[in-house]
């Protein structure tokens, strides 16, 4: 891997998926290319996993509920949190 590849790799953002989203994405974790905000992140995820866009979910940055304009970087831990209903 050359330096440029390593740089790109280091800018990737790790995203954890919970519940029905992990099922739809067929993975409980994925990496997405660098973005600046939560709304950009959401757009990117829905491009890569179109079936996710049908499901309502919240996004957490570093284990705190985030808003559309919350900044994100490769250092942050991102989670996609759909609601659960089973009892």
């Amino acid at each position: 891997m050359d330096t440029q590849d390593q740089n790109l790799k280091s800018q990737e953002i790790k995203v954890m998926a919970f519940g029905i989203l992990a099922e739809k994405m067929n993975a409980s974790e994925c990496s997405i290319p660098s973005v600046r905000t939560v709304s950009e992140l959401q757009k990117k995820i829905e491009e890569l996993y179109p079936e996710v866009s049908r499901i309502p979910y919240s996004i957490a940055v570093d284990r705190k509920l985030a808003h559309a304009d919350t900044p994100v970087s490769a250092q942050n831990e991102i989670a996609l949190l759909p609601p659960f209903s089973g009892g």
């Binding site: 029905i20 309502p56 759909p82 609601p83 209903s85 089973g86």
Partner: peptide
């Protein structure tokens, strides 16, 4: 509702499925 403002519609996340558990 702070976490999930609205209930999902049934075609988004189906309810009462006979899910395994």
């Amino acid at each position: 509702r702070d976490l999930h403002p609205d209930p999902p519609s049934r075609d988004q996340i189906p309810n009462c499925q006979q899910n395994g558990v």
